[in-house]
Computed example of a mutant assay.
Amino acid sequence: MNWKSFFLGAAVGIIGGYAAKEVIACKTYVSPEKILEQVKKQFNQNGPISGSWIHMEAEPYEKQQINYRVYKGGISKNNNGTTEQFEFIADAQTGTLIDVRTLSGIS
Rank of each mutant, 00 (worst) to 15 (best):
L103R: 14
K27W: 10
T82Q: 14
I54V: 04
N80S: 09
K21H: 15
Y68M: 00
E84D: 12
I35T: 03
I98N: 02
K41N: 15
S50E: 07
F7Y: 12
G51C: 03
G73Q: 00
L103F: 02
G74F: 09
G13W: 14
V23T: 09
V100Y: 04
I89Y: 03
I106H: 09
T82N: 05
A11M: 05
Y71F: 07
T94N: 05
I15W: 14
Y61V: 00
Q45M: 06
F86P: 01
N78Q: 04
N44Q: 09
W53C: 02
N78P: 07
E22Y: 13
E22I: 15
E87T: 04
S50V: 08
M56L: 14
R101V: 15
W3T: 12
Y68N: 00
E62H: 06
K72A: 05
I24E: 07
A19K: 07
L8S: 12
R69H: 10
Y71N: 06
E84L: 03
E84N: 09
C26Y: 13
E33V: 03
L36G: 00
V100I: 15
Q85Y: 10
E57A: 06
Q38D: 15
A92F: 03
S5P: 01
C26M: 15
S50T: 07
Y61S: 01
Q65P: 02
S104C: 08
Q42L: 12
T102D: 04
P60T: 06
Q45C: 04
N67F: 06
I75G: 00
